[in-house]
């Protein structure tokens, strides 16, 4: 029996960037070694980063992961087994 995770990941990246001296997407991208377009995609909720990138972001903003990323499960989908 398997259960496929369905839900939406939201994030506070944009807010955290502005709180950190209005850091630009380019500066953040350079700090963690990804392209600016990847940061833009993460902020727009269109791309979920790997755990490695998520932990790097957590480190840069000195925030725990669950403060940066939030998971909202879609109950109707997760109940299907």
């Amino acid at each position: 029996m398997s259960k496929k995770a369905k839900g939406v990941i939201s994030n506070q990246l944009r807010k955290k960037r502005f709180e950190k001296d209005e850091m630009t997407q380019q500066e953040l991208a350079k700090a963690i070694g990804v392209t600016r377009q990847t940061i833009a995609a993460i902020e727009a909720g269109k791309y979920s980063p790997s755990l490695e990138v998520a932990f790097c972001l957590s480190d840069i903003f000195s925030s725990p992961l669950d403060e940066l990323f939030q998971w909202q499960a879609n109950d109707s989908d997760t109940s299907k087994v």
């Binding site: 070694g33 990804v34 392209t35 377009q37 791309y47 980063p49």
Partner: peptide, 11 residues
């Protein structure tokens, strides 16, 4: 001026 050799996980 982005580094053209940079290929990240999304790429």
């Amino acid at each position: 001026g982005e580094d053209i050799s940079l290929i990240d996980e999304r790429d």
